[in-house]
């Protein structure tokens, strides 16, 4: 399974776009929001945690359809399914690879973009922590959506329609942590709930993803 992870990371590096594309999208999105609402510092500071979370979520969404589509096209997905690895493990590794190539760069970039949005001082640490805890759930949920739509032509839009409602609880608690952090309030409750959601999805969703993948490979 480590071999699978290593292969996916190698491919993301060599094919290009794996790391860069999501980040570029994140940057553009933040800039567009600033253009949209105006340059006033106080307003940007107030909406910064929410914008940075929504931006990370959308940037994450962008690369979801590649999780299985490429492997499906060249036949590796079928061959992997007949390999001795459990399908649950395969989808977990796929989600992990997606998180490392897409989620983690976003987590690292978010504080920098926070500077641009005039995020208040105490917010940086909590923004970073909330994204660090929350983005794995986004990758795991996205992997489920990708597994659902892997056999479909033009599945991209459908994938977004299915995955985005699933992102709601993660977004709410994640953005709440960042917001409360920025305003200097106690973050413990939403932080624990966010961690709970991430743990729950990590533990259970791979089974659902593997089940739908099995159906789609049939």
């Amino acid at each position: 399974m480590i071999a699978l992870l290593r292969r996916d990371l190698t491919l993301a590096l060599r094919a290009g776009g794996g790391f860069g594309l999501g980040l570029a999208f994140y940057l553009i999105l933040v800039a567009l929001v600033a253009f949209g609402v105006g340059p006033e510092g106080a307003l940007l500071a107030r909406i910064a945690p929410g914008i940075l979370w929504v931006g990370a979520l959308l940037a994450c969404l962008l690369s979801l359809d590649r999780i299985f589509a490429l492997d499906r096209e060249d036949g590796s997905l079928e061959l992997l399914a007949t390999a001795p690895l459990p399908l649950e493990g395969i989808v977990t590794m796929k989600a992990l690879a997606h998180w490392i190539t897409t989620g983690l760069p976003l987590v690292v970039a978010a504080p920098l973009l926070g500077l641009m949005l005039n995020l208040p001082g105490p917010g940086f640490a909590w923004l970073f922590v909330s994204l660090l805890i929350g983005t794995p759930a986004l990758s795991v949920l996205g992997t489920f959506g990708a597994a659902l739509t892997v056999g479909l032509k033009r599945g991209g839009l459908l994938l977004s329609l299915i995955v985005l409602p699933l992102y709601v609880p993660t977004l709410i608690f994640g953005a709440e942590v960042a917001r409360r952090g920025a305003e200097g309030l106690a973050v413990q409750t939403p932080l624990l709930l966010l961690a709970g959601i991430t743990c729950g999805t990590l533990a259970l969703l791979p089974f659902a993803s593997a089940a739908v993948l099995r159906v789609n490979l049939r």
Partner: peptide
């Protein structure tokens, strides 16, 4: 199973492709 599609990655070398499937 050896299907129509070979399950090869264009961006990886022959050795890397084979090593991956061996490792799996």
């Amino acid at each position: 199973y050896g299907a129509h599609a070979d399950g090869l990655k264009a961006q990886m070398s022959v050795t890397e492709n084979l090593t991956f499937w061996a490792a799996v």
